[in-house]
């Protein structure tokens, strides 16, 4: 109780807004699972980031815990500071995908960065997962 009182509201600088394990994300597609989780106020939690730095950025794949399920997702917008000409978003956005890279939803409601086109094309292998399907359900690129 005492520790709660003292720890709460104590901060001196901005947080780094890094996407690590246990970070909460915002699902931006119209998949029923994601929509329901966001509506209930239980946004998905990152339980693994599939890269070597273990800090996720635009285009990285993450494993999520969402409504008691394990689901993969692709980061389509991040809060942390970006290099010039790359958009920075006000929330950490994620799109849910199946294991073969097919998105669960049929529409992405927010703009996604152009950079994602290059990154996802590079990640796609001929016989492996095809991530470029995500690009075709996007409504707007920035």
């Amino acid at each position: 109780m005492i520790s709660k009182i003292f720890v709460r509201n104590f901060y001196t600088s901005n947080s780094l807004s890094e996407i690590r394990k246990l970070a909460r994300l915002r699902v931006v597609d119209n998949s029923p699972l994601g929509k329901q989780a966001m509506a209930e106020g239980k946004p998905p939690k990152v339980i693994h980031v599939y890269n070597k730095q273990s800090v996720g950025t635009t285009g990285d794949m993450v494993l999520l815990a969402i409504k008691g399920e394990k689901k993969k997702g692709i980061l389509v917008g991040v809060v942390k500071d970006q290099k010039p000409n790359i958009p920075r978003f006000d929330s950490n956005n994620v799109v849910l995908i199946e294991h073969n890279g097919t998105p669960v939803g049929t529409r992405i409601h927010v703009p996604i960065p152009h950079l994602l086109r290059t990154i996802l094309k590079e990640k796609t292998h001929a016989k492996g997962a095809d991530y470029t399907k995500l690009l075709s359900i996007a409504t707007k690129f920035l």
Partner: peptide, 12 residues
């Protein structure tokens, strides 16, 4: 703010 999503871009 595009589609209710805040976006920022840094230009040199």
């Amino acid at each position: 703010v595009v589609d209710n999503q805040g976006v920022e871009i840094l230009y040199e």
